[in-house]
Design a protein around this nucleic acid. Structure first.
Lengths: 199, 199
DNA sequence: GTCTATACAGCGATAGAC
DNA sequence: GTCTATCGCTGTATAGAC
């Protein structure tokens, strides 16, 4: 997983993987540079060599988990049967609700960074941009199911579905909503939005 | 605001109001006991006299903002025209999306405490309980609109609507979604869920 | 690039007087 | 109940050697 064709992933990437793990375990609020260093097996000074300061770690990690999430979306098993438009939409929205360790890491870290952005203007722009990209992706997938729907209606449906996923994700991660139930709720919401767009 | 018929609100309440303000301003992670003391105009020692420790402040504040939110829901202008069932439902769900200072304080603090609960088992139970109460309230209001709907369907619609509100609230508070748009999205979602329950 | 060592500040929590 | 004063830890960040 940390290998590519050209060798071992570089140090910075390794540090970011460690940062994602620590944030997922302790939260942004609980991220200690010292613990990150231990997790990565390096000294704290090296962290400050690669990142300007604590906020620099957070910003870089946000970018890192966004790139990693993009990779998941792109990577489909080539042997699996091709998905129809609704299937692709569901897959995208349900991506966060999996028991896979790395996915859960991504969801947790993303939720944390989003929550922190409320108080950290330095994060707001990046979070807003990532959210926008996600909303637009979902709007496009909705458009594949209902090509006749208007752009404004697609955008609003996409905003609702993605915000719902974020809300449910937060409940799931805090242990107040079982994974299975969260997935059922998303499926129901998708069908409701598709029904609305069909009308 | 800090008065009632029997005199000035007691000290503990004043401290909790101050705590809600500080959490709304700095977040849970940014809450410093010293700043809370300054905000309330008392010494830090007094904080520890009234609360066991920092976590005790958080737990008490969570309870406080829940009670305060309940009070909003109950208090309606007696001169206003009575609301129909859908109107009551909308009012409950849109309660968080207002430019009122105290309401915004409540939303922000609630979002923070919910986000923190992912990493603080001590908060999870309280957060889950509050969420459950809210979901049940919304389910009941949905039932007033569609008395023939089944309990399971009402519960799932309520879960979706409340989770959506939480997701949108987080976007609003981090400045990536205008208040007005958030409200429109909620109204749309309510109508979609009501249409589903009518079928 | 990476480490060891450490300066320095911030903050939670308590002791003890009034 | 409330304050002043302070302890002691924890955590960010840097200096300087290799």
């Amino acid at each position: 997983m940390r290998e590519d064709g050209r060798g071992v992933a570089d140090r910075r990437t390794m540090l970011l993987e460690a940062a994602a793990r620590v944030i997922a375990r302790r939260g942004v609020r609980g991220l200690r540079v010292e613990e990150l260093a231990a997790e990565a097996g390096v000294s704290t000074a090296l962290i400050y060599y690669h990142f300007k300061n604590r906020m620099g770690i957070l910003r870089a990690t946000l970018e890192f988990i966004n790139d990693r999430a993009d990779r998941y979306t792109g990577e489909r098993d080539p042997d699996a049967p091709p998905l129809d438009a609704r299937g692709e939409l569901l897959e995208t929205l349900l991506l966060e609700f999996q028991d896979d360790l790395e996915v859960r890491e991504n969801s947790t870290a993303w939720g944390e960074l989003r929550a922190c952005a409320v108080f950290e203007p330095d994060l707001q722009e990046d979070v807003a941009k990532s959210t926008l990209v996600w909303v637009q992706d979902v709007a496009e997938l909705l458009g594949h199911v209902h090509p006749q729907a208007g752009a404004a209606a697609l955008a609003m449906s996409a905003e609702r579905l993605t915000a719902l996923v974020e809300g449910l994700s937060s409940r799931w991660l805090s242990g107040s909503l079982p994974l299975r139930h969260a997935r059922d709720l998303v499926v129901g919401a998708v069908d409701a939005e598709l029904a609305r767009l069909a009308a």
